[in-house]
Nucleic acid binder design. Sequence first.
DNA 1: CTTGACCCTGTACCGGGGTACAGGGTTCAT
DNA 2: ATGAACCCTGTACCCCGGTACAGGGTCAAG
Lengths: 126, 126
Amino acid sequence: MNTETLRYYERRGLLPEPDRTVSGYRAYTSAAVRTVRFIKRAQRLGFTLDEIAELLHLADGGPDSCDSVRSMAGARVADLERRIVELQAMRDALGRLAGTCDKPREQRECPILHAIALDAPPGETL
Amino acid sequence: MNTETLRYYERRGLLPEPDRTVSGYRAYTSAAVRTVRFIKRAQRLGFTLDEIAELLHLADGGPDSCDSVRSMAGARVADLERRIVELQAMRDALGRLAGTCDKPREQRECPILHAIALDAPPGETL
DNA sequence: CTTGACCCTGTACCGGGGTACAGGGTTCAT
DNA sequence: ATGAACCCTGTACCCCGGTACAGGGTCAAG
């Protein structure tokens, strides 16, 4: 963890403004450390910093907050699912193209470039 | 397609500077249109604009270019594969957490928040 | 008591892929 | 001949998640 990043989180409202020592240094409590760990884990689950801020504000609510958290999680899962499908389509298309690179070296004309250049998908809107 | 985007591609070196009419308007040839379509398709395959610029510069080379293109495609496929695996891990972890939201409404304490807060992965470096 | 390693604030910058002005010129239909 | 709807250049800005200064204060070891 970079100190600049901690201050950035403070600016973004993810971390509360910490108490200061007499000379003005930030004195982080163990609660702040826990919050930072929470942030990092939530990031690994694909939440954006804005969403994490929302989660943190919900964290002390009751059953209603619980519902909100659950629906945020559901939205994230759906979004992850969409992105996975997209990336798989890219990988498959590109893998298929690369598989066509099989002519002997002397008579090549790069099938990948030709395929990207020619293979217009249906309904393309330029 | 936005006109600003075309100029942006021109600045980035993806499109050659087009000829101008007497009054200075850009006169795009059909070759330029084909290039733009190429760019859009390559983007859909996950290439960055820098990579696409490289592909375009390679597009008129011979067998050696073909090898370069093939290795770029291979690198992209590997990268896509890595990203897919990451997103799947996120989706699975978050889906599992959401599955634990099952207590009756009155006695909830948001298991998702608790799990994110407590479930430290091994080898975590803050 | 100096030197080096930290901390502070404030502001600017990175990369990626564009988008949005401002302040002008042109073209075309009415 | 005039108004809308385009085009031009140049520059600045957007989001996102930080990172990097500059110009100063503080703290602990030697």
